[in-house]
Each structure stands twice: as structure tokens, then as C-alpha cells.
Write a protein that binds this DNA or RNA. Structure first.
Lengths: 194, 194
DNA sequence: TTATAAAGCAAACAGTCGTTTGTTTTATTT
DNA sequence: AAATAAAACAAACGACTGTTTGCTTTATAA
């Protein structure tokens, strides 16, 4: 008999649901993505999604959590490979951008879907975002900068530019997440070398 | 018989419709704002909006156009008050941020609502955005930078950071659009002074 | 083999969506 | 005062929204 290969049932199709939800939330935004869209993408009936998630917002929160987890993990790993503060920051910037522009969907949802777009889940989303922001704050705090430097502005400048790149980035021969992150950091770092 | 230029009634409540649409699109996003929301805000019936606009997308495009017009105007005026390239750029950055964070609704819609969120109008929205981006490209081109400097990255870094500020900015005593724009530019400019 | 619980189906719920249509009000022009 | 055109009303259209309910299938454990 053709016993269809069956993995244990426990995590059945939940990962697939999250994948497609992430893809659709990223592509069309939260409000413009319907539960029916997601159901169709995983070849299910709309109501069946509610076995896995109590509400649409909870599905978004789950994607958000995975997004933050993925990107944090990548950045932490990159940081740990260096000792010098500027190198740590550069590695973090590269990892951040690669997670955003290559890993794709999950991470992009985090910076594309605004907490205010989902009032009922806004608090949870903000909390997840903040936990990540702290990572970069620590890196910037460790930089050997002139005493009059505004470190908060420094962080906001860098992270803002990195996040905004989603709007214009197109992969190409000389354009990679890595090269962009490095270009940005070079523009910010040069003053320190003198 | 005087060709009476009929200002009288012609654009009666159209400005009000645009104002409220801009406010709602900024607050809740495009997809989450319904024509009924807008109609209620201007104390009209939903169907009446269709006397002024053939479709919801056209209403967005109108807001977009006004947003680009407002911010371009402000930035151009600021630029014209200076001669030195760095001062021109700083004035432009300040004006850009003030238009975004103080003028409010219209300009914010332009950087908050993504063209891809409105497929039918995407081409028109991109065109409007690009017309503005060119303004900054010219300013950066005029800067006296070391020959090896990547001017495209410079522009993307600055403009990205400025646009992203919508996500964290809160008006306060020591925090103003002007002070932020200046902080950013100082971080980018310092290397040139040495 | 039978019991059990996970997972999904089928169908509908009440409400909202963008939009259209025919009619009425309102202000201006003749 | 009558004619005209702008502007808004009133009511509905079909499609789509998130979600609920009861029932059936399916894989695992006893």
C-alpha cells in the first residue's frame, strides 16, 4: 500500500501557515490580507485556521515573534564573531540587512507592519520591537566616539537607513545587503579614523 | 457678458474631504480606511464622495499629489535661502523633516502608504515619489566630497533615516524636527571638516 | 481493534466593503 | 421668476470580511 510519508502529527501544518501568512502580510500588508487569502495559500478552508489561531491578530503576532527571533539570532551570532566595537557594529548591520532583504518575509513583516495598524495587538508588537532595538543601543554605546557625539542620533540614523532600504533595494551584481551595510557604516565611521 | 470665473462654489467641500482622507490614511493606513470612514468624517453619505472622486484610489492619489507638492515646495524654498552646498542640504533636511513631522498628514501619507498597497495606482504614486527624490540627488551631487565617496549611498542613508523618523519621533523640549535633522547631518558631515 | 484527540471540512453568521443608481436639494445664471 | 447645473441624499447592489458552529476525517495510543 502506498503509505504516504507522514511526519509526526504534532506540528502538522502550522509552519506552512506561518510561512504563507508572513509572505502575504509582507506583500500586501496586514489589513489587505484576508484570512481567506491565507487559507487558500495553504489549501485549507478559512475556518480551519481558527484551530491554530484564535484570531487574525494572533496570527500576526506569531509571525512577528518569529521575525524578531530570526533577526535577533542572526545579529547576535554575527556580533559574537568579533571583538572590536566597530567591527561588531558592522557585522550587526550586515546581519540585520541580510535578515531583512534575504531571509525575507518574517523579518520584513516586523518592520513593515506597524503596531498601530493592529490596535488590539499593538502593545505586544511594540514590546517585541523594543527587545530588538536594545541590541543595537548596546553596540553603539560601546563605540569609541568623541565625547560630544550624540549616540542616540547615531543609532537612529543607522537603523533608520537600514530599515528604509526595504523600499528601494533591488538585488544586483554590485548591490548586496552586505555592500550596502558597509557603505553606510563607512560614511559614519570615516570621521573617527582621522 | 463676462466670462465669470466660477470660484464661487466649484470646490466647495473638496478640501475638507482631502484633509480628512489624509488624516485617516495616515492614522490607519490605506486599506484599513473605508470610504464610509471618510464620509463620516466630513459628515456626508458614502456615495456622495463619488461625485468628487471616481474611486478610492483616486482619492489617495489626490492626497499623494498634495503631499508631494507641499513637501517639495517647503524644501525648495529652504534650499533657495542658501548658497553653500552643505548649508543647502542641511536646510533641505530640516525642511523635509518639518514637513513630515509638523505639517503632518499629507506629507506623511506619501512616505507611509506604499505604492504596492494600491496596485491600481502604484505607477502614479511611484512617479510622484521619484519626482521628489531627484531634488535630493541634486543636492548631494553638489557636495564637496572626497572623490571616493559613494554619493548614492550618502543620499539613501540620509533620506532613509529622515523618513524612518516617523516611527520614533515624539515632540519634546529638546527634540524637534530641526534638531534631529541637524544631528544627522553633523554625523555625516564631520568627516569633511578635518 | 477500539478509543481518543488532533486537524480539517462544510456551511453559515452578521457585518462591512467599494460602488452605482435615481432622486432631491441647493446655489447660481438667465 | 424660471432654467440650469452642482452637490448631496437615500437606498441598495453583490462581493467580501473575520469568525463560529457542528460534523467528519485521520492518525496515534490503548
Amino acid at each position: 500500500m502506498a503509505q504516504t510519508l507522514r511526519v509526526s502529527r504534532s506540528d502538522s501544518r502550522l509552519p506552512q501557515i506561518l510561512d504563507e501568512a508572513a509572505r502575504l502580510f509582507r506583500e500586501k500588508g496586514y489589513a489587505a490580507t484576508s484570512m481567506r487569502d491565507i487559507a487558500a495559500a495553504v489549501d485549507m478552508l478559512p475556518g480551519s485556521l481558527y484551530y491554530h489561531f484564535a484570531a487574525k491578530e494572533d496570527l500576526l503576532v506569531a509571525v512577528y515573534e518569529e521575525g524578531v527571533r530570526l533577526i535577533s539570532e542572526k545579529v547576535r551570532a554575527a556580533i559574537s564573531r568579533h571583538e572590536e566595537p566597530w567591527q561588531k557594529l558592522e557585522a550587526a548591520a550586515v546581519a540585520h540587512l541580510e535578515a531583512l532583504l534575504k531571509t525575507g518575509d518574517y523579518a520584513l513583516v516586523v518592520i513593515r507592519v506597524l503596531p498601530q495598524d493592529v490596535p488590539k495587538a499593538a502593545a505586544r508588537l511594540v514590546k517585541l520591537r523594543d527587545s530588538y532595538d536594545r541590541l543595537f543601543a548596546e553596540l553603539v554605546a560601546a563605540l569609541p566616539l568623541p565625547p560630544e557625539t550624540d549616540r542616540q542620533s547615531f543609532r537612529l540614523l543607522l537603523l533608520g537607513a537600514l530599515n528604509w532600504s526595504q523600499h528601494w533595494f533591488r538585488e544586483s551584481g554590485r548591490n548586496s545587503p552586505r555592500s550596502i551595510a558597509r557603505s553606510f557604516l563607512r560614511l559614519l565611521r570615516e570621521e573617527q579614523k582621522t
